[in-house]
Amino acid sequence: MLDISNYYEQLVIDQLWKLNEGSSEPLTRAFLEDVACLVLNQLPPCYVRNAADKSANLTESQYTQMMDAASKAIRQAIELVHRRPHDDRET
């Protein structure tokens, strides 16, 4: 298997982790996974072999744009998942 990953995955996971830590009530794993999937499907893929190499080649402006895009997509996904929680959906 190739050793590649979507750079946005770690950005999204990091932001969700911080959101969960700051929450007065811990978010469920299912909730976080649903949000992460919705977010990553909204963001453009950015595949890398090494996240450190990608970070080293991003300008501050590019990194800020990526973080802002992830934050916006997270807010939208949270609203959507709150409207239709995982437990309320048919499998």
Results as ranks from 00 to 15, higher is better:
Val12Asp: 02
Asp14Thr: 07
Asp14Ser: 14
Gln15Glu: 14
Gln15Arg: 15
Gln15Met: 14
Leu16Glu: 04
Leu16Arg: 05
Leu16Ser: 06
Trp17Met: 10
Lys18Gly: 04
Asn20Ser: 10
Ser23Val: 06
Ser23Thr: 08
Ser23Glu: 10
Ser24Tyr: 04
Pro26Lys: 14
Leu27Tyr: 07
Thr28Ser: 15
Arg29Gly: 01
Arg29Phe: 11
Ala30His: 12
Ala30Leu: 11
Ala30Gly: 08
Ala30Gln: 11
Phe31Gly: 06
Phe31Met: 06
Asp34Ile: 00
Asp34Ser: 15
Asp34Cys: 07
Val35Gly: 06
Ala36Arg: 14
Ala36Leu: 01
Cys37Tyr: 06
Leu38Ser: 04
Leu38Gln: 07
Leu40Lys: 05
Leu40Asp: 04
Asn41Ser: 05
Asn41Trp: 04
Asn41Pro: 01
Pro44Phe: 00
Pro44Ile: 00
Pro45Val: 06
Cys46Ser: 02
Cys46Leu: 12
Tyr47Arg: 04
Tyr47Pro: 01
Val48Tyr: 05
Arg49Thr: 13
Asn50Thr: 06
Asn50Met: 07
Ala51Arg: 15
Ala51Ser: 15
Ala52Tyr: 11
Ala52Ser: 14
Lys54Trp: 15
Lys54Cys: 11
Lys54Gly: 06
Lys54Val: 03
Ser55Asp: 15
Ala56Met: 13
Asn57Leu: 13
Asn57Gln: 15
Asn57Phe: 08
Leu58Trp: 05
Thr59Gly: 14
Glu60Phe: 12
Glu60Asp: 13
Glu60Lys: 10
Ser61Val: 13
Ser61Gln: 09
Ser61Leu: 10
Ser61Phe: 07
Tyr63Lys: 13
Tyr63Trp: 08
Thr64His: 08
Thr64Pro: 00
Thr64Asp: 05
Gln65Thr: 09
Gln65Val: 02
Met66Arg: 07
Met67Cys: 13
Met67Leu: 12
Met67Ala: 15
Ala69Thr: 02
Ala70Lys: 00
Ser71Glu: 10
Lys72Trp: 03
Lys72Thr: 13
Lys72Asn: 09
Ala73Arg: 02
Ala73His: 08
Ala73Lys: 03
Ile74Thr: 06
Ile74Glu: 03
Arg75Val: 11
Arg75Met: 08
